[in-house]
Amino acid sequence: MILIYTENWDGKFKKLTYELVSYGSELAKQLNTNVVALSIGMVEDAELKTLGKYGASKVISINNDKLNTFDTQTYSTIISQIAERESANTIIIANNNIGKAISPRLSAKLKAGLVSGVENLPTSIAPFTVQKKVFTGKAYANIVIKSDIKILTLFQNSFGIIEADKDIEIENYNPADINLGTTVLETHKAGGKLLLGDAEIVVSGGRGMKTAENWKPIEELAELLGAGTACSRPVSDEGWRPHDEHVGQTGKIIAPNLYFAFGISGAIQHLGGVSSSKCIVAVNTDKDAPIFEAANYGLIGDARTILPEMIAAITKLKNS
C-alpha cells in the first residue's frame, strides 16, 4: 500500500496535493497496489473526496484541535502509526516545509530509506531506484533504496496531475495521547500573497533593476499574469525585496512553467534555484551574461525599458 500525507491549507487541498496523489497512483500501478491518503486537520468530507479523482481509494482523516500546532515529533509519530497499521511499503510526502520536517523523522522511526526531492517515478522497481537532483541541480544521482519501506518527497510542480476516477472511502481516526513538544507563541502570515512554490509563472528581478523603486513594473507584470514575484540573492541582501522572495541555491528552489529573469546575470547559485523551470526568459543588457545559457528565450536590453513594453504587449494580447 502507498501512503500519501496530504497536507491542507485552511481545510483545502492544492494542486500540489493532487500532484502527490497522482504520483502515488501511477506508482501504485507499477507496484500493483492501492493508494491511501492521510489528512490531519479539519477538512470537510467533500474536500476529502476530491482525492479519489486522482486515484486514492481511501482517506484516513484525523481531526484533533491539538494538531493545529505543527509539532514534528507528534505528526511523524501519527504518520508512522498509520503506516504500520496499514502496512505501507511506500510513503509519499511533499518536499515543502512540512514534508522536510516530517520525512526524516519517519525515516528513523520506520528504518525507511528517504529520498527527498524526486521529480519522476522510479527508474526501476527491483532494485527500487529513483533519481534526484544533487549538487543543487548540477547533476542527477541514481539512488537505490535498500530498506523494505521507502519514503519519497516529491518536488512541487515536477510531476503534474493525472485524473483517475476512483470511489473513495473516508475513515476517521483518533490518535492516542498527544504530547506536544512545541508551543507556538506568535504567528505572522501575510494573507493573499501567492506562494512562490505554487506559482506557475514567476517574475524575478536582479541587480540590473538598480533600485527597489524599480520593482513596480515587475509587480505589475506579475499581477497581470497571476504570477509570483521573486528576486536574486543580492537584491534580498540589499533589502530591496523580502528574503522569502530570494530564489537560488541558498534561498527557494522553484520549478514554475515560466520564469522571467529581469536584470539577473545568472550566477551558478541562482541557476541552481531556477533551472528546473520549464521555460526561462532572460532580459539583460550584458549579452555574455550566463543567464542566457540557461534561458529558452533571450532579449538583450535594459529590463527597465523592456518591462513596460511587455506589460503593454500582454495587455494587448489579453484584450484580443
Binding site: V115, T129, N296, E309
Partner: peptide
C-alpha cells in the same frame, strides 16, 4: 539505507532563442 549507484549530468538544453522586441 540508501546506495548512490551512479550520477548523470542534466541533458543539454536547446540554445537560447534571441528576440529583438517585447
Amino acid at each position: 539505507l540508501l546506495e548512490y549507484v551512479g550520477y548523470e549530468m542534466p541533458k543539454a538544453k536547446a540554445a537560447c532563442k534571441y528576440v529583438e522586441t517585447a
